[in-house]
Amino acid sequence: MPQVVGKQYKEILKKYLESHSEEDLYVGQQFSRRFIEKEIAPEDVISIHKTALLELHPELQDEVWDSLDFLIEMMIHYGFTLRERQSLIRKQEIIQMEMNVATKVQNTLLKTESPIVEGLDVGWISEPARQMNGDYVHFINREHESSVAVADVMGKGIPAALCMSMIKFGMDGLVGENSNPGKALSTINRIVEKSVDDSMFISMFYGKYNSENKMFSYASAGHEPAWHFSNETGTFLELDAKGLLLGVKVDSVYEERSVYMQEGDFIVMMTDGVTETRTEEGFIEMKEIQNLLLEVKEKSASQIAEHVYNNLTEAQNHRLSDDFTIVIFKKK
């Protein structure tokens, strides 16, 4: 094959030496792609050049040939640096393939079904900044109750995602019990404390809506406060409850509080990927997010979540700087 390439190269070089035209330089540029496609090393390119020139102009002085030999020596290191790079790219492709599989596994593992409870409309979005998600949303449904856990592992990517899988098992253990938010968080906290590395911090907001008394009760493990939108007053009330991050202390106690939900009210639960949205002008103001919510307060819970997501990603030029999760519980 190199002989064929060498012959073609000689023809192109010959034409250029006669014409000095831009057109022939363009042909040369196109031809150089073939060198790369065929993974011909730089030192071989010079050797091809030398061979071609030797056939076209054997009358040239020895200095020319000697200097080309010198250039070949110079290019050997370039050659294997290039090959090393190609091999690293191939390795990278393998890692990327493994990542794709891991993402699929994560999506299957962390799959959760939106709750169906009378009088409650639920909408949510959870999008990773990179390929794997360090945020986590999990719903638990009972006859008259709908619970949700919104968690955020500090950090992004694979380590956060691996950690999340652990939380999932803690959550599964809760399904059988009739847990209130405060009790649920202490149970998960004990599991996390036992199994997760000390350097991993996890915050979680746990909320539960009861369709019989229309109360929303909640507890927080160092998580972003949620917001309660009151349709009557048209204002937002911050929902925060005392409690340490998960895994810090084995016997942490989590305060539990509750609010009554009227028709048209909704609860907004988020991770810091939402509240710490960074635009070119700096961090976004709470007020701006609340204005976005107000614009669509009459819409369905899913539409509200989408509206916030679409606007905040647009403000970041469609790149997320952190995993982004928003959950809306809306009283019908």
């Binding site: 030192e43 071989d44 050797s47 030398k50 030999d69 070949i72 020596e73 050997i76 290191h77």
Partner: peptide
């Protein structure tokens, strides 16, 4: 060996 391979072996 040709020039290029000589250079490779030497390197």
């Amino acid at each position: 060996f040709g020039t290029v391979d000589q250079a490779r072996i030497t390197t």
